[in-house]
């Protein structure tokens, strides 16, 4: 069906596919700049990440195992696909299932070499995945329940296109989920104290961990894919604030900037932890914040019914 809404959705998808790397790159640039200032350094230009990635693509392709390349391309494809589903207004649960599938391709690409540093990095990446997964599913469920607690909706829905039309921002119903989600964002963005599988900065104990054996174009693909993923995840942050009121988009943008800044602060003020502490902390926080919020939502819904 061709109507205005569908055209808008299509435009949103195209804008995402075209612009996400630029937004992601710029955010990365600001990250470096702000981090540098926090450490009383001048820091690189904001556009530096683009030069870095361009340089990666121009390098000679050296590789331990050539099959990395097609696995990484599949990884990139599914990250973009997940983002496109999100910005196209599709099912939120589908979006998260898609990102999990994508990250499995990354893990397979890394582990196909079975070398020392990637080996450790891959397992750590897996633990990171296990820490984030419950929260991602819960966030989708939280949004679904927020629509059923909200009387505007006849039938509850997972669809992003319907979620952005609510009268009340979802954050009102989902404060616990929001805290949990911000928590796992630190893991997802590979920020200290949870940069155990790899890190955006050079200060990594297992020599770039999961990405250790990627070089040149292969590493470039990973960087670009991560930009896409960051934009998608920040979009989810925004979704907590968006309502049918156009002004809410400004609030959402501010919230995204704040959250990103918060992540930079966390990154610069904390020391890396061991995987077991990360695991306990994340599952604990997800269970307490997400679980409590979920219980409250179920109760509200039953009252409404």
């Amino acid at each position: 069906m061709i109507n205005t809404v569908n055209i808008l959705r299509l435009i949103a998808v195209i804008v995402f596919i075209v612009c996400a790397p630029f937004i992601g790159g710029i955010l990365d640039g600001f990250d470096r700049k702000i981090s540098a200032r926090m450490q009383r350094r001048i820091g690189p230009k904001v556009t530096q990440p683009f030069y870095d990635v361009l340089k990666l693509f121009n390098k000679e392709f050296v590789s331990v195992n050539k099959s990395q390349l097609f696995l990484l391309l599949s990884y990139l494809f599914f990250v973009i696909f997940a983002g496109a589903l999100f910005f196209g207004g599709y099912d939120l649960l589908m979006v998260f299932l898609c990102t999990s599938t994508a990250s499995i391709f990354l893990i397979l690409a890394a582990s196909s070499t079975h070398t020392a540093y990637t080996g450790v990095g891959t397992l750590r990446e897996l633990v990171q995945m296990m820490c984030c997964e419950p929260m991602e599913l819960l966030v989708a469920i939280g949004f679904y329940l927020s629509t059923s607690a909200n009387k505007d909706f006849v039938t509850p829905t997972f669809k992003v296109i319907d979620l952005v039309r609510s009268d009340m921002p979802a954050i009102i119903y989902l404060p616990g989920f929001f805290i949990g989600f911000i928590f796992i964002l630190t893991i997802k963005f590979r920020k200290s104290p949870f940069d155990i599988s790899t890190s955006h900065h050079a200060h990594q104990e297992v020599v770039k961990g999961v990405t250790a054996e990627f070089s040149g174009a292969a590493y470039g693909i990973v960087e670009v894919a991560e930009w896409y993923e960051q934009v998608m995840l920040l979009g989810v942050v925004g979704l907590f604030f968006i309502t049918s009121n156009p002004l809410s988009y400004i609030v959402a943008a501010l919230a995204i900037i704040l959250v990103y800044f918060l992540e930079i602060i966390i990154d610069n003020t904390s020391a890396r932890v061991k995987w077991d502490l990360m695991f306990k902390l994340s599952w604990g926080i997800i269970f307490i914040c997400g679980g409590t919020n979920l219980l409250v939502l179920e109760i509200i819904r039953n009252i409404n019914i």
Binding site: S63, S74, T115, A116
Partner: peptide, 18 residues
């Protein structure tokens, strides 16, 4: 598809970092 696209990519085989 990506497998066939990248099958003929020129690559310099190296050993892993250790």
């Amino acid at each position: 598809v990506t497998y066939f696209l990248t099958r003929n990519t020129k690559t310099k085989p190296v050993i892993g970092y250790m």
